[in-house]
Design a protein around this nucleic acid. Structure first.
Lengths: 229, 229
DNA sequence: TCAATAGTGTCTATAAGACACTATGCC
DNA sequence: GGCATAGTGTCTTATAGACACTATTGA
């Protein structure tokens, strides 16, 4: 029985708690935002926290599979890009006892996240349960860093997008503007995207932008530039 | 009692095995080598494996502390640079059952490793227990990659070293020669090392080389270059 | 003075960044 | 035509790499 199971875990001094937590990032109104859930059980009942689950031998084939399950069951989303960030562990981070969590992060376009899921701009993060505030901060730092030399920002867009849209995402993450000519040159050198012939995107009363898409090989992994962005 | 404890772990389907493994790297005769230990217990009794331990709530304050303990108790070494690499997990990697291991890697000069510890060139790796061969391969790849843009290689040297020695370490990890003038320029730009005034190193019947040391701020962490190498 | 390794000054090639311009579409 | 955004050609500057040279020591 589950209840007995948990008590055993609590009382056994040699069996650390093992969980995964997922940092699901998206752009909302031009702001990098993270998916948070309200805790329904102690500890930290009622506090905001990252979507996370216990790693279960019966359900998960790996820690990454557990992270997938956490994203699906707690935030209602799946992500083609789901990468391990690292671990946090120790006797103090969880009041229930010695715990270790494996942290994963994912980037998606906000359209794949249900409206019911709470998205909070990382710049206005409230207090979070456990060490989750520090975790979000560290993951955001990593993500911003990867925006400097990889294709990671494309995962924040929909399947089809324009170069100006892609440039805007890069600029948001890197926090500085980019020259369109130089930007196009560098993206081309990454061999990341391909034109969708004929398709143009209307965005007002101006010239329509050419539509692009990520080439198959990079749909679920990064393209990396040697010399940075 | 420990014996009962282990049986409980084996039979409990909800409690994954939690371990840490350490990849201790050093240069031996100019070859990147890894510390291996011979397993004394099942499974894989008699096979070569990475130094690793169970994470113990009573002994370890964190997974990293457990990795320190593994290095000290199994390889007889401590390392100022000990970094998390990632995790491996699943039902199949350990015959005892569902397991998760946190992998750490360390780089040291071979002089701090006891002669009794087995060091094997990573280019001539034998078959290893568990998924340890894949782990060593992935860590080596990461280390070689970091040699392209950070100060990581200095951890393979002693406290005092010369520029030609440092250059040789970089060349070994990167697998290609470097121009001395360009190398010195780039190392200087990293703000990594300082001259030890007056000290010169004799290495034959030739000109003596100036001795350098890593400045304090980078004794236990990396210095990173923006544009690589 | 020769061999061997240490160390430096400077030119060249390449890549990043700046800037000026042309293109398209709706009003 | 005018305005707004899309997109391109090219010059300038910064950095990486190549090369030629000088320096110091022991034999």
């Amino acid at each position: 029985m589950r209840r007995t199971e948990k008590l055993t875990r609590l009382k056994d001094p040699m069996t650390p708690i093992l969980t995964v937590d997922a940092v699901l990032l998206t752009l909302l109104a031009g702001e990098l935002s993270v998916a948070l859930i309200k805790r329904e059980a102690t500890p930290f009942k009622g506090a905001w926290a990252l979507p996370g689950v216990y790693v279960k031998e019966a359900e998960d084939d790996s820690a990454k599979a557990a992270a997938d399950r956490a994203l699906k069951s707690k935030a209602g989303a799946t992500s083609p890009y789901l990468e391990e960030f690292g671990t946090r562990s120790g006797p103090a981070r969880d009041p229930r006892g010695w715990s270790l969590t494996v942290i994963y992060y994912a980037l998606v376009h906000h359209s794949v996240i249900p409206a019911a899921t709470h998205l909070v701009p990382v710049a206005k993060l409230p207090g979070l349960a456990f060490d989750h505030a520090e975790i979000v901060g560290s993951v955001v730092e990593r993500v911003r860093s990867k925006a400097n030399y990889s294709s990671l920002p494309v995962f924040l867009l929909e399947e089809k997008f324009t170069l100006p849209e892609l440039q805007a995402v890069y600029e948001t993450l890197r926090g500085k503007p980019e020259n369109p000519a130089n930007f196009q040159r560098k993206i081309e050198e990454m061999g990341l995207i391909e034109m969708v012939p004929g398709e143009k995107k209307v965005s007002g009363r101006n010239r329509r932008a050419q539509v692009y898409t990520v080439i198959k090989a990079f749909r679920d992994r990064l393209s990396v530039r040697e010399r940075g962005l």
